[in-house]
Design a protein around this nucleic acid. Structure first.
Lengths: 363, 363
DNA sequence: CTGTTAGCGCCTTCAG
DNA sequence: CTGAAGGCGCTAACAG
């Protein structure tokens, strides 16, 4: 069937004995006589013809490509989102071009201007940090952009964001209900959008419940990564004795868990742990990690659909969607009363861990 | 600077008072008089002009896009590879189009024929299963393809693969050296390329060392996933009593660890554990998991460079690269003598960052 | 219903 | 060194 040489409309037309216009019509499903239709289809089949995307794009003014820019590819939550976006976008007949920018806004600005080269019909952007210049550039873009994340109210762009504050609320409510009193918070960098949102969520949630909130209970990792989480957790445990820890994402939570286990602390008995994003890795660990589901998949899907909608209807009203969080309870935050199974490495609370163990009486 | 309307060569030419040919020349760095050069650059700057990628592609016959198709986006090793490919490809001035096909060869065949639409200059493909039709399609593709994985010797394509067999050898040698005698193997589906390779690596390595190899010691997970790993491990532990387990990838290993801990088995004391791929998740767990580094990052980088090379020189001789494996030893396979059993609660603070074998890099 | 034709925006000989 | 003109492969009027 498929010839190896590249074949064009003209080739097919010659072989079918018709004009190129007829070929184009048949292949695009426009009305044509049975005889022509049949001859064209056979010729096309024999030549393994497929319309050239580039030429078509030039003519039609659409590339059928959607660009995606995510800040941090090392983070499983972005991977999950990308995966979902890929699905939706592909189903709608678009290809996905991934432009992995770092968390640096400048890179994203560069990307935005390169978008004007017209290799994509639209962009989905999930910026970690939002600066003035970035916003300007966003506003003056020639083609549709959907932002995943928070944006100043005056920016006229479709967007979808998580409600981090509500999410923190869920986490803290859950921990409080289970008797935790000294709830620590390991955040990522506060100069990021999620970092800022989650911090304010923490303080307001703690405040609302009238819970103790020593500065010692709050540390910021340099980054939303496992490595940064190890350091941050060490710092935290050296300066405070929490009976629960909430982490700004799952990677930080996994790191916190690692450090705690290393120190012989029992999770959740000594310290309860809650992560955020509810990614796959939260259930890989032992104990598995309770995590706030910020609707990453749903946000991804919504963003993709929002963009596709706007591509179909450029004048549609701007939409700003907020996805509500849910809490996925796993082993790391709830002490199971029934002790059928022998717990692993039953390190007895010795004087070495004094100050950490007990105290909270969360038993 | 940037106007909001799309500007074309003609616009720039008018504004600069020259012909469109001159504009094109200046912008492509071809010789031109100082005065013209200067006027054109200023005009282009003022209009925020950037050459349209589609039109350029049509004319030049290159899209500056590279397509990537990986089988399983849920697997961290593919994510890591994609990330690396993205880097290399971007540095070389290409955009990356990700086509997430499933593990189904038919989808990949569909993809291959769609590639003939010419939206990309080349393809990097990492198939999980290789069937006859897929090979045929690969061979008759009009544009360059680099395959990550094994391929029949008569297929004339650039490729780069891991040496799974040697990798299994490393794992088993390591375990044997540490006194393990009943080494079990949890594989993924055997009808996949890596599944088959790793199984034959296991049997030959065990055979070579004259080690016991009851059928009970070998199980196949339905998939290379965490969930499938849970089931497979349960099956294994119900039917045999190994003193070590090797898993065909890290996800399976993490699952195995989870099941073992649940059953009160101590790792590595009771059972040593070794994974494969050496992805980030291998160091997230407690204990962290020893893993065979199959050079995923290196394979990815090599594949990308191979494709770029071929794009530059279509007549270059076909290259088949094999990446040698290394073993990254972590906690799950070696019993530490100093902290045996009882008192590991008094771990020093610095232990948080201790024991990090080089490898995946937890970013 | 079908063929002819005019571009989409750009690059690149070919004259001048 | 610069301008005019011819396509790249395709679609969408416009005639026939």
């Amino acid at each position: 069937m498929a010839e190896n040489r590249k074949s064009t409309l003209v080739l097919v037309a010659e072989r079918a004995g018709v004009s190129i216009a007829s070929v184009s019509r048949v292949l695009n499903g426009l009305p044509a006589s049975v005889s022509v239709t049949e001859r064209v289809q056979r010729a096309a089949e024999e030549l393994g013809y497929v319309a050239d995307a580039t030429a078509r794009s030039l003519k039609v003014g659409k590339t059928e490509q959607i660009a995606l820019a995510v800040a941090d590819v090392g983070n499983p939550v972005y991977v999950a989102m990308m995966h979902e976006i890929s699905r939706v976008v592909t189903d709608a007949g678009y290809r996905l071009v991934v432009s992995s920018t770092g968390s640096d806004p400048d890179e994203q600005i560069t990307l935005l201007s390169s978008l004007n080269r017209g290799y994509a019909d639209g962009l989905i952007l999930s910026p970690l940090r939002v600066t003035e210049p970035l916003i300007d550039q966003l506003g003056s873009s020639r083609l549709p952009i959907v932002v995943i994340g928070s944006l100043p109210a005056d920016v006229e762009l479709d967007s979808v964001r998580a409600d981090s504050a509500a999410g923190m609320g869920l986490a803290i409510k859950h921990l409080a209900k289970h008797g935790r009193a000294r709830i620590a918070f390991i955040n990522g960098p506060v100069d990021t959008v999620p970092g800022a949102a989650r911090l304010s969520g923490y303080t307001s949630a703690m405040h609302k419940r009238g819970m103790a909130m020593h500065g010692d209970l709050q540390v910021n990792a340099d980054d939303f990564t496992f490595a940064a989480g190890l350091t941050a957790t060490t710092t935290l445990l050296d300066q405070a004795t929490p009976d629960a820890i909430v982490c700004a994402n799952d990677l930080l939570a996994v790191a916190a868990l690692k450090v705690m286990l290393k120190r012989g602390l029992k999770v959740p008995e000594d310290i309860a742990l809650v992560g955020m994003d509810d990614t796959d890795i939260a259930e890989l660990t032992t104990p598995s990690i309770t995590s706030v589901n910020l609707g990453s998949i749903k946000r991804a899907r919504t963003a993709a659909k929002l963009l596709i909608r706007r591509l179909a209807d450029p004048d549609a009203p701007v939409k700003r969607v907020v996805i509500e969080p849910k809490l996925t309870v796993r082993e790391s935050s709830v002490v199971t009363h029934d002790a059928t199974e022998t717990k692993r490495a039953s390190a007895p609370p010795s004087s070495a861990t004094a100050g950490h163990a007990e105290g909270g009486g969360a038993r």
